[in-house]
Simulated scan of single mutants.
Amino acid sequence: MVKETDMNACEPHRRRGRPVQMDSAAREEEIVRATKALLMSSSLDEVTMAAIARETGMSKRTIYAHFDSLEALLRRSMAEIGKVIFLPLNEVEKTKPLKERLSLLLTLNKPPVSEDRKREFLRTLIAKAHVYPNLAREMCQNGRGILRGYICAELEEAVREGVLKIAPGRLALAAEILMDMAFWDPVPSLLDPDYIYPVEGDMALRREAAIEIFLNGCLTHRP
Rank of each mutant, 00 (worst) to 15 (best):
R16K: 07
E11A: 14
L38W: 01
E11H: 13
A37K: 10
A26D: 11
I31R: 03
T35Q: 00
R18C: 01
E28I: 01
M22I: 10
R16F: 05
K36G: 07
E28N: 08
A34K: 00
A25V: 08
I31S: 06
E11P: 09
P19I: 08
E29D: 10
A9Y: 07
H13G: 12
G17T: 01
R14T: 04
L44N: 00
T35R: 03
G17N: 06
E29N: 02
A26K: 04
H13R: 05
R18G: 02
R33N: 03
A9I: 13
A37T: 13
I31A: 00
S42K: 09
M40Y: 11
A26L: 06
T35A: 06
R14N: 05
S24Q: 11
R14G: 04
E28L: 04
R14K: 13
V20S: 08
S43N: 15
R14D: 08
S43V: 10
S42D: 11
P12L: 12
L39D: 09
M22F: 02
T35F: 01
R33L: 13
S43M: 09
L38P: 07
A37W: 08
D23Q: 11
R15S: 12
D23H: 12
E29L: 09
K36S: 03
S43Y: 04
L44R: 03
C10P: 01
K36T: 05
D23L: 15
M40W: 12
P12H: 13
H13E: 12
R15P: 00
A34F: 12
A25M: 14
S43E: 03
R18F: 04
I31G: 05
S41C: 07
A26Q: 14
T35E: 13
V20P: 06
A25E: 15
Q21F: 10
C10Y: 09
K36P: 14
M40S: 11
Q21G: 01
V32S: 07
L44T: 01
D23Y: 09
M22C: 07
M40A: 14
D23M: 06
A25Q: 15
M40Q: 15
M22R: 10
R16W: 00
C10E: 11
M22K: 14
E29M: 03
P19N: 04
P12I: 15
A25W: 01
E30F: 02
R18W: 03
R27H: 09
G17F: 01
L39P: 07
C10N: 07
V32C: 03
Q21I: 06
E11N: 15
G17E: 10
K36A: 01
A9K: 02
R27V: 11
R27M: 13
T35G: 12
L44Y: 08
C10A: 09
H13M: 10
L39K: 06
K36F: 01
M22E: 04
S24P: 00
E30I: 15
L39T: 03
D23W: 10
S42Y: 10
R33C: 02
